[in-house]
Write a protein that binds this DNA or RNA. Structure first.
Length: 279
DNA sequence: CACAGCTCCTGAATGC
DNA sequence: TGCATTCAGGAGCTGT
C-alpha cells in the first residue's frame, strides 16, 4: 500500500528523471485511469514542460509550465515507472507519458502508470491556491513546513472517535495509511481503539512524533514492499518491511516485550498491536 | 459539522 | 482439481 514514504520515494525518483523534460505524447488505456473530475484529457498537456514534482500526503503532482498540473494518486496498487518506451508494457498499464529531453536519452523516456486494482488515478487539474484542486482539502503532511504540530494535536484531542481511524483521516494529518498508523501507535504505546478525547496532550504529541520518526525511517529504506504492488520508479522494492514491529506480524513476538502481536478488525480495517504495551 | 458505514477493484489465499 | 468465498484497503460519498 503506498503511503507517504512510498509516495515520497516515487516523487524523488520522478524528480530525478523527468524534471525539465517535455511531454510529447500522453494516453490512457483504462476507463478508470483518468479521474472523472479531470478538466481535460491527458492529451491536453502534450507540449508542456515538467518544472517540478510535488507531493502532499499521498497525493503527487507534476508542476508544468502552464497553470495545469498532472495529479496522481496511487490508491492501493498504483505505480509510476520511468522506463524506456521500447521496454515491454506491463499487463496493468493504465496510462503513459512519452518524454523528450537529453538527460537520460531513450532509456528513461516514458512515465508509465501501472495499477492492478484500479483505485489509483491521474488527472489534469487547475490550482486552488498552491495545490491542485483535488489536493486542496487534504491536510498538511508532517514533513511540510506549514505543518503545525500543536494545532494538529489540539484538533485530534477534540474528536470523539477512536485514534486509529483519526490517524487515517487525511483531512487532519495526511500521509498516514494502515501500515504506518499501526506502527506509530505501537511506538507511542497507544491502543488503536482509544477515544481521542481521552488521550493527553503529551500522548498525542508523542504519537505524531512517532509517526514522523517511523515514516522518516521508511523513506530512508525506500519504503515498505510486501509484494509486487509497491515499486519505486525503477521497479525496485523498498526495504522497510523487515523493520515493521506490528503490521502483518500477527502472532509474532512484540519486539519490545515478546507478547504475541494481536490483530483485530474495526472500522473496516485490520489493526495490529501489542495487548501488553498498548493498553 | 462530525462521524459511521459503504463502495469501488483485482488477484492471492483459503474453504469445501 | 475446481469452483466459490474471503481478504487487502484509500478516499469519496451517503445518511444520520
Amino acid at each position: 500500500m503506498p503511503e507517504l514514504p512510498e509516495v515520497e520515494t516515487v516523487r524523488a525518483g520522478l524528480a530525478k528523471y523527468v524534471t525539465g523534460k517535455r511531454i510529447l505524447q500522453a494516453a490512457d488505456f483504462h476507463p478508470r485511469a483518468v479521474k472523472p473530475t479531470s478538466i481535460a484529457p491527458l492529451s491536453s498537456i502534450v507540449g508542456s514542460q515538467i518544472k517540478s514534482v510535488n507531493r502532499r500526503g499521498k497525493f503527487l503532482w507534476l508542476t508544468l509550465d502552464r497553470p495545469h498540473a498532472i495529479v496522481a494518486h496511487l490508491g492501493m496498487s498504483g505505480q509510476l515507472l520511468v522506463q524506456s518506451t521500447e521496454s515491454k508494457a506491463h499487463k496493468h498499464l493504465r496510462a503513459s507519458f512519452l518524454l523528450s529531453g537529453s538527460k537520460f536519452s531513450r532509456s528513461q523516456n516514458e512515465i508509465r502508470f501501472v495499477d492492478q486494482r484500479t483505485f489509483g488515478w491521474v488527472s489534469i487539474e487547475e490550482y486552488l491556491g498552491d495545490v491542485p484542486t483535488s489536493v486542496a482539502h487534504i491536510a498538511f503532511d508532517p514533513f511540510e513546513d506549514n505543518f503545525d504540530l500543536a494545532a494538529v494535536v489540539k484538533r485530534i484531542r477534540s474528536r470523539k472517535s477512536a485514534i486509529k481511524p483519526t490517524l487515517l483521516n487525511q483531512e487532519i494529518v495526511s500521509g498516514i495509511g494502515n501500515i504506518y498508523a499501526d506502527e506509530s501507535l505501537w511506538r507511542a504505546k497507544i491502543h488503536p481503539e482509544v477515544i481521542c478525547e481521552d488521550l493527553s496532550n503529551a500522548e498525542v504529541k508523542r504519537l505524531i512524533k512517532c509517526a514522523i520518526d517511523v515514516m522518516s525511517e521508511a523513506i530512508s529504506a525506500g519504503g515498505t514492499s510486501f509484494d509486487e504492488q509497491y515499486k519505486n520508479v525503477n521497479g525496485e522494492s523498498g526495504y522497510f518491511e523487515r523493520s515493521l514491529a506490528v503490521y502483518g506480524q500477527e502472532g509474532e513476538p512484540c519486539p519490545r516485550c515478546g507478547t504475541a502481536i494481536a490483530r483485530i478488525a474495526f472500522a473496516n480495517r485490520s489493526s495490529h498491536f501489542c495487548q501488553r504495551c498498548q493498553r
